[in-house]
């Protein structure tokens, strides 16, 4: 009950600060652009395939197209922008005069952390349902092939968001500043995970253009393994969407583990801190 009121409060904050309307406005623009794109020549190849091809060819084409959507950089950038938007939640809550009152209420600090986590996740779930749901309907209506698996991507991207959000929250608790939280994420956290992803892909390939020393390689692998793997998760998401068997579950397991550790750290830190 109290937890529900708290989550509702976070949502109301998002509404009042025009965060929700901004997200929906921005996503609507994306959807309109998308409508132009698929009626335009940019996907001529796809259209040709659709017009000429057999049923198998059509399915193939739609799946390929949809997997491009979910595995591309634009989707990651959307997740990143959602993280930027939600970066202010924790620092705003910690402002003097507000946190005192909040903590004097019969709601435990652990519930406050969980409430914030759930509220952020819910906010993004709603937003991505709108965006990806619309895209799905557009593509399906255009092509006539309704690939229900594409809808998994809503859950995947919400999950990717939550995993990264658990770390964003911790940075928010530690820095108590929105700007710092955003900077640390943009300049340190996301680039690091991306470089580690590239490094890992490189290690798994046969090319050995650049040679890392054994220590460097071990270090890179170590950090790759403990940090969340948003990029790998996007690849896994593409596999889900195209209905191909998932080849590697390690990124899922380690990312979820990372999230659990981050959430525990959030709860531990918030529970011992004076305000």
């Amino acid at each position: 009950m109290v937890l529900y009121a708290f989550i509702k409060g976070v949502f109301r904050e998002a509404l009042a600060k025009r965060i929700l309307i901004t997200i929906f406005g921005f996503f609507s623009v994306l959807i309109v652009l998308f409508v132009f794109a698929i009626t335009n020549s940019t996907v001529e190849g796809l259209q040709l395939m659709l017009e000429s091809g057999s049923a198998g060819g059509l399915k193939e084409a739609v799946l390929t197209f949809e997997s491009y959507i979910v595995s591309g950089i634009p989707m990651f950038m959307l997740v990143a922008s959602m993280l930027i938007i939600t970066s202010s939640f924790i620092p705003d809550m910690l402002k003097k005069g507000h946190i005192d009152l909040l903590l004097s209420k019969p709601i435990s600090r652990t519930k406050i952390v969980i409430g914030h986590f759930l509220a952020g996740t819910l906010l993004v779930l709603v937003s991505f349902t709108f965006l990806l749901g619309s895209i799905w309907i557009l593509v399906s209506a255009k092509t006539g092939y309704w690939n229900v698996s594409f809808l998994y991507s809503i859950l995947w991207f919400t999950a990717i968001f939550s995993i990264l959000y658990s770390a964003v929250m911790l940075i928010g608790f530690l820095s108590r500043s929105t700007i710092l939280t955003i900077m640390i994420n943009m300049l340190l956290f996301f680039p690091t995970t991306f470089l580690l992803y590239l490094a890992n892909t490189y290690f798994q390939s046969d090319q050995k253009g650049i040679v890392f020393g054994p220590v460097a390689e071990a270090l890179l692998k170590f950090f790759y393994n403990i940090l969340p793997k948003a990029w790998d998760l996007q690849d896994v998401c593409a596999q889900y969407v195209t209905q191909t068997p998932v080849t590697n579950t390690m990124p899922i397991i380690s990312s979820v583990l990372f999230m659990c550790v981050m959430l525990s750290l959030n709860i531990w830190y918030f529970n011992k801190k004076d305000y």
Binding site: R12, E13, A16, K17, K95, K96, G97, H98, D100, L101
Partner: peptide, 8 residues
């Protein structure tokens, strides 16, 4: 010095 959310 309480500070309530001022959009309420």
């Amino acid at each position: 010095n309480h500070r309530f959310p001022n959009y309420l």
